[in-house]
């Protein structure tokens, strides 16, 4: 399989800071790849480099095997949606959508047909003559999406398109973006700092830190098998443990790793009545004390001190388990097969 869009050793410095450190990335046609990472990790810069809005210091960007590094943004056939939408305030919704086609010399009729199609797609036909400032944030973002799609780019870049919107609209628009992306089989790179958004939307997630991609894989791979402490901490509320802590909990561990991770939902909380030793024969039972309980809707999150280690433990909120929390003393069933051995950062 050859990549549709391929980044090879992309480097970028701002002053003396390495913003991008030899980034390599291959993207298949029609794939939706998320660049996920904390702010300042270089994900937005990478996106701007692909678009040509920021020049790179080294590396190659191949689109359908052709190097596009030396092309101006307008010749790259790449569309981009900005976090702030960047709609043209002096143009109506329809004129915004038609802008790219106009610049590329499409006829008036062609432009109108295409913009009507897209207005129907984003369900804003009644707003075609409105100015952007009279639209809500969600509507503006849909117009920005339609405007990018109007020129049929080969790759669509989305730079934190949902982060300025409130939670409910964000969820709806998230689904809408994914549907549209699938409908057009649009090769898409989506930048976000929200791991939940990345897990839900993507075919593949690339987690970035300090200018490098530290791990990439399907959402499931990234969530279930984080390779380093950074990934484990970023992807979920993993318990990240040092070797001495692991030894206190499990007594022995066969690994040269120095840090370990265990998912909050992989513990079993035992209450006195329901304690069936036979059922947990292959597991270690450890006593602990509940430090704090918080209800996150369908799950209950416990902070439990066990063997001198503070653990975060998630339990399904089924009405039974809550009683444990009221008492203080609990027992935990640990399964060392759930323990992930982490690599050193940068390894």
């Amino acid at each position: 399989m050859s990549a549709y869009l391929e980044l090879q050793g992309i480097r970028k410095q701002f002053g003396n800071t390495n913003v991008l450190n030899h980034v390599d990335l291959q993207i298949r046609e029609g794939e939706l790849v998320t660049l996920l990472g904390p702010s300042g990790c270089g994900k937005s810069t990478l996106l701007r480099c692909i678009a040509g809005l920021t020049e790179i210091d080294g590396g190659q960007i191949l689109l359908e095997q052709k190097d596009i590094v030396n092309l101006a943004p307008r010749n790259r056939e790449i569309g981009m949606v900005f976090q702030s939408y960047a709609l043209f305030p002096n143009l109506t919704v329809a004129e915004n959508i038609q802008y790219g086609m106009k610049m590329r010399g499409a006829s008036k009729g062609e432009r109108r047909n295409r913009s009507e199609e897209l207005l129907a797609l984003i369900d804003l036909e009644d707003k075609r003559d409105a100015y952007p400032q009279h639209l809500s944030g969600g509507q503006q973002q849909r117009v920005a999406l339609a405007r990018s799609l109007a020129v049929q780019p080969k790759v669509l870049l989305l730079d934190e398109p949902l982060s300025a919107l409130d939670a409910k609209i964000r969820k709806n628009l998230r689904t809408e973006i994914r549907d549209i992306q699938k409908k057009f089989n649009m090769t898409t790179i989506f930048v976000t700092h929200d791991q939940e958004e990345a897990l839900i939307l993507s075919d593949r997630v690339c987690l970035m830190n300090k200018g490098s991609i530290v791990q990439q894989g399907t959402p499931e791979e990234l969530y279930t098998t984080p390779r380093t402490e950074f990934v484990a901490r970023f992807m979920g509320s993993y318990n990240v443990l040092t070797k001495p802590e692991v030894l206190r909990l499990f007594e022995r561990v066969d690994s040269t790793a120095e840090s370990f991770a265990i998912r909050p939902e992989s513990f079993i909380l035992l209450n006195e009545e329901g304690r069936n030793e036979a059922l947990y024969a292959d597991k270690r039972i450890v006593d602990g004390n509940v430090h704090a309980v918080s209800i996150l809707g369908n799950i209950i999150r416990y902070e439990i001190d066990a063997a001198g280690v503070r653990l975060t433990i998630d339990v399904l909120n089924d009405g039974r388990s809550h009683r444990i929390g009221d008492r203080g003393a609990v027992s935990l069933a640990l399964d060392d097969s759930q323990l992930l051995h982490l690599e050193k950062e940068g390894a």
């Binding site: 809005l53 307008r74 790259r76 790449i78 900005f82 960047a86 709609l87 043209f88 405007r147």
Partner: peptide, 16 residues
């Protein structure tokens, strides 16, 4: 008017 982003958008849409 966030000129930098407006300009970026316009350029990506094919404007000189």
């Amino acid at each position: 008017v966030s000129a930098v982003e407006l300009l970026g958008s316009a350029e990506l849409l094919g404007a000189t």
